[in-house]
């Protein structure tokens, strides 16, 4: 079964289940796509190159017109920050952050830049009940803040803990996350601000499928310099941004237990029972009703308690 067919099927079943009177609009069924676009762009992130200068954070802040940070972008004390024992993560005020790790037995610390990975089949997108998210043909996962209700289901769903929420907005709290610089750059074919700003070219921008080759080449051509894994090639159905590293990924804070299948696959079984319940239940229970009340009065207020004590 092709992915598109499956998507339509899932959409149809949930929509059908949503309400018997809802005729889902064509729009709803056509929006987004669950297959990675063949010519979608991506970014290869080579952790071996990153020196933790935080220039990319500054670039994102400028490009996305984000609020003033708590500390300057050349303040490296942020690497020592722990929040509830956790290193920093992207928020509504910073779409990307760089963290420092100390892999076992390595001389140099390892730095890892985190931002939205622009998944091929984004969990955030599939979990959103107002369809605020879109995976664009260019490969970006963007969202429409105008329809965001603020349910934060996408934050629950995102396996990489990416989306932030403007908790401090009174009138219009919405989701905020990295958008691959879609509006200002990607749309015109230009690389994102963070990619361009990096002095070490940690990030290489290009078509995802070309980058995958480059990543494999780098691993092949530099024996011993990389662990033989491309994080994001398969994880949760593949991500637009993916990583190669010289240290095992779990030592750089990556979740290596993520399923290889897209997150939506988990939910598929449940969505599949929806049409079943919808079609079978009414007949079943009306049948029960007819059987159970056969030959009895329909009236309300009859108290048959005495003779019906135990069944």
């Amino acid at each position: 079964m092709s992915k598109i067919t499956r998507r339509k099927f899932l959409a149809g079943s949930a929509a059908g289940g949503a309400a018997m009177m809802l005729a889902p609009s064509k729009n709803a069924l056509a929006a987004g796509s669950f297959e990675g676009f063949p010519d979608g762009m991506g970014v290869l992130v080579d952790l071996t190159r990153c020196v933790g200068c935080r220039t990319c954070e500054a670039a994102c802040n400028t490009e996305q017109k984000l609020p003033e940070p708590a500390k300057p972008f050349d303040d490296y004390s942020v690497f020592d920050e722990l929040h509830h024992g956790q290193k920093r993560r992207p928020t509504d005020k910073a779409y990307t952050v760089v963290n420092r790790y100390e892999p076992e037995g390595a001389d140099e610390p390892l730095y890892r830049k985190i931002q939205c990975n622009h998944c091929n089949e984004p969990a955030c997108l599939t979990s959103c009940f107002v369809n605020a998210y879109t995976k664009t043909p260019e490969g970006a996962v963007i969202y429409n803040a105008k329809v965001c209700v603020g349910c934060r289901n996408c934050m629950i769903a995102c396996p990489f803990h990416i989306p932030g929420y403007t908790y401090n907005s009174v009138l219009n709290p919405v989701i905020k996350k990295c958008i691959f610089c879609y509006d200002t750059r990607l749309k015109e074919g230009k690389p994102p601000a963070c990619v361009e700003s990096c002095p070490q070219q940690v990030m290489t921008f290009g078509k995802r499928k070309d980058l995958m080759k480059i990543a494999n080449d780098r691993i092949k051509k530099n024996p011993g310099q990389y662990v033989n894994h491309i994080y994001g090639e398969k994880e949760v159905g593949g991500t637009g941004w993916f990583y190669i590293s010289n240290a095992p990924f779990e030592q750089a804070g990556f979740d290596i237990d993520l399923p290889k299948k897209p997150i939506i696959d988990n939910v598929k079984d449940f969505l599949a029972i929806v049409p079943m319940v919808l079609t079978i239940w009414p007949a079943l229970f009306t049948g029960f009703h007819l059987l159970a009340t056969k030959g009895k009065s329909h009236g309300h207020g009859d108290d048959h308690s005495a003779e019906q004590e135990d069944h």
Partner: peptide
């Protein structure tokens, strides 16, 4: 200005920078 350091540093940050 870009790094929001020096005279452009955020008010709140009594920071020290250095590598």
């Amino acid at each position: 200005k870009y790094y929001r350091s020096g005279e452009f540093a955020p008010e709140a940050a009594a920071h020290s920078s250095g590598h």
